[in-house]
């Protein structure tokens, strides 16, 4: 395509990139996915017939810290994007890696929390709280894990020189996914942990 310019190549009817449009459609659809789990949690809140109940188990300071970690990982993620958009590959790698570390910390916190709750007698089948809590936060954790995998893959590719300023879209898309996982946690943190009738 010798005579075709970059702008010719990127032409779409809406002027928007296919992959970015796909990502936003996916996120819009994922709203319904998490909405369904959150709805089940809210519907069954306070309806467990046996304990342990949320008030017996929730460790708000601990969860606040992990919520804070995930929130900060959004900041580092957007800094990685800002770096690559300015062509700073080195800083992008640093922020990308930091984000992956923070995400891993969040997952570690969740594993710790699940284990603790389990020791105190809450399992998937104990009561409605156990069922709805583990499945909702577990699916969120799965999303974070996929996010960490994506970040680490991008990091490896960038170490091999595969991500330059012109490829910033890859980082942007990973970022969109990552921030979405973060805002889901913002909702879960408030509705599940902080609001307890």
């Amino acid at each position: 395509m010798a005579h075709a310019t970059a702008a010719d190549h990127l032409q779409t009817s809406t002027g928007l990139d296919n992959r970015k449009l796909l990502m936003w459609l996916f996120l819009a659809s994922d709203c319904l996915f998490f909405g369904s789990f959150i709805a089940a949690y809210l519907l069954y809140r306070g309806r467990s017939v046996v304990g342990p109940y949320p008030a017996d188990l929730f460790d708000i300071p601990f969860t606040s810290v992990s919520a804070f970690i995930l929130l900060m990982s959004s900041v580092t993620m957007v800094l990685a994007l800002a770096a690559i958009q300015r062509g700073n590959v080195r800083n992008m790698r640093i922020w990308l890696f930091t984000t992956a570390i923070l995400g891993t910390l969040f997952i570690a916190g969740q594993v710790f929390e699940f284990t603790e709750f389990n020791h105190e007698g809450l399992s998937l089948s104990t009561n409605l709280f156990g069922t709805t809590f583990f499945v909702l936060t577990g699916f969120h954790g799965a999303h974070v894990t996929v996010g960490v995998l994506i970040l680490l893959s991008l990091f490896v590719v960038s170490m091999r020189g595969g991500i330059q300023q012109k490829d910033s879209l890859a980082i942007e898309l990973a970022g969109l996914y990552w921030h979405f996982v973060d805002i889901v946690w913002i909702v879960i943190f408030t509705l599940v942990y902080l609001i307890q009738p």
Binding site: V49, L124, S125, T132
Partner: peptide, 9 residues
């Protein structure tokens, strides 16, 4: 799990 288990509420 208990999502649809009436016995558990």
């Amino acid at each position: 799990a208990n999502f649809f288990n009436a016995e558990a509420g």
